[in-house]
Write a protein that binds this DNA or RNA. Sequence first.
DNA 1: CGCCTTTGACCCGCGC
DNA 2: GCGCGGGTCAAAGGCG
Length: 181
Amino acid sequence: MEKYPILFPAQQSSSSSTSFPQTSEMLGSTHVFGSLHGGNSSGLLGLKDFEGRGMSPQGGGAHHMKSLASSMENETRPDKKKEKKVRRPRYAFQTRSQVDILDDGYRWRKYGQKAVKNNKFPRSYYRCTHQGCNVKKQVQRLSRDESIVVTTYEGMHSHPIEKPNDNFEDILNQMQIYSNF
DNA sequence: CGCCTTTGACCCGCGC
DNA sequence: GCGCGGGTCAAAGGCG
């Protein structure tokens, strides 16, 4: 796959213009944010209020992996000093798009893909490639509505956007603002 | 050549 | 205790 500058425009009209031929789509996305605090309807689906109970943000939990004996720079498990239960909120957004990956200006690296039950489409896991940035996101498509793509963000970026991206950056900022509270 | 996707194995919490 | 579902890692391959 390639990373196109923007994926909102219909793929059939491959006019190399960076503009948005379908502004309504963008408005649709914005509307999603609008209903973020409004709640309900098809705008925003309930976000998982699972505050990461099983997941740890830092290498602690993310590094459990298989019990290898060689590279265990971090504390193994004998010293269970994991008093840091950092709960990390997750924010889900739903967008109408024909493509799964929406380019929000950050660079993501895919690190997994799993099939979801009751869903014929798999879920993809992405992580921000910026060093020290632990932001993750997962993209999922509803089998009910193939035209709906759910994107769940986890964490917040603490570094500038790498790729300038029209006014989409503004939406990103709004998202972060909402996430902060 | 470097970055990214793919893919199977592995880990963990939870329910039965 | 075992199986299931969800989440992550890491090796290998692909593509610009």
